[in-house]
Amino acid sequence: MTTPRDLLIVAMDAAPVRSVERGDLSLALAGAEAIDLLEAQAIALDGELIVPGYRPALTDRLLDEAAASVVQQMPYEPVGEWLWRRGRGLSAAYLAGLEADGQLTRQRRRRWLLLRTSEVVLVDTPARREAANRWASDEPVLAALATAAGLGEDRAADAPDVTDEAVATVIGAVEDAIQELAAERQRRDRRRDEAAVDNVRRGY
């Protein structure tokens, strides 16, 4: 399994208790992809720029797509920009991937808050147990990404720090992007509330 798949499984296991915004999760999944690509030496970082490495044989289809999406020539793309581009709709893509791999099953009368409209549950598989073990061990990368996405804040202080500089840069970019997205939601909500007040004043 990959870090993005582990992160999604952790998010789904937490979903009955705590909902996760799709956009936040998608950005965190893109960050998880970048971290796995760093480990595979498919990319490197020059400051905050993603520099392509060699193209290793990646057995995970979505991770291979992530590697293919990296800008291959200068000017290289900053991590933050890549997260926004790659992250668009990524949570749905990973959900579909888990379902295609038999990691999810559809079930009536049970609804995950994460999915809003889809009634699917995780199957008890070795992959799910591996993700759960990684989460329970407070593995620093998974813990940091999950915290950025809005999960496990109560565990964040107990998780070891990420020591790899490039990985820490990616996680910082994920946190910044999610904060930016939250600020945009607040602006949108405020505009909607102001419009509602104006409509009431006009008698609508």
Rank of each mutant, 00 (worst) to 15 (best):
M1P: 13
T2L: 03
T3M: 06
D6N: 09
D6T: 05
L7D: 13
L7G: 08
L8S: 11
L8H: 08
L8T: 07
V10Y: 04
V10C: 05
A14L: 06
A14G: 02
A15C: 08
P16I: 12
R18E: 13
R18K: 12
R18T: 14
E21P: 02
A28F: 09
A28T: 06
L29G: 01
A30K: 01
G31R: 03
G31D: 05
L37S: 11
Q41W: 01
Q41A: 10
Q41F: 06
A42W: 11
I43T: 15
L45Y: 14
E48L: 07
E48C: 04
I50S: 12
V51C: 03
G53Q: 10
G53H: 12
R55P: 02
P56W: 10
D60V: 00
D60A: 03
L62C: 01
A67V: 03
A68Y: 02
V70Q: 07
V70I: 15
Q73M: 07
P75D: 11
P78V: 06
V79P: 00
W82I: 07
L83D: 05
L83N: 11
W84G: 00
R86D: 00
R86K: 00
G87W: 14
R88T: 14
S91K: 11
S91H: 13
Y94Q: 11
A96C: 05
G97P: 05
G97H: 15
L98Q: 15
E99S: 04
A100E: 15
A100W: 10
D101G: 12
G102Q: 03
G102L: 03
L104H: 01
Q107H: 02
R108S: 06
R110Q: 04
W112A: 14
W112M: 15
W112G: 15
T117Y: 00
S118M: 10
E119D: 04
V120Q: 15
V121Y: 03
L122Y: 07
L122Q: 05
L122M: 09
V123I: 09
P126W: 04
P126H: 06
A127R: 11
A127P: 01
A127E: 14
R134E: 14
A136S: 06
D138P: 01
D138H: 15
P140R: 06
V141A: 12
V141C: 09
A146T: 13
A146D: 12
T147M: 02
T147Q: 02
T147L: 00
R155D: 02
R155P: 00
D158I: 00
A159N: 12
A159G: 08
P160W: 05
V162E: 13
V162Q: 14
A166Q: 11
V167C: 11
E175R: 15
D176H: 08
Q179M: 09
L181M: 05
E184L: 08
Q186T: 10
R187G: 04
R188Y: 03
R191V: 09
D193Y: 03
E194G: 01
A195D: 09
N199K: 11
V200T: 03
V200D: 07
V200C: 01
R201W: 05
R201C: 01
R202H: 06
Y204E: 11
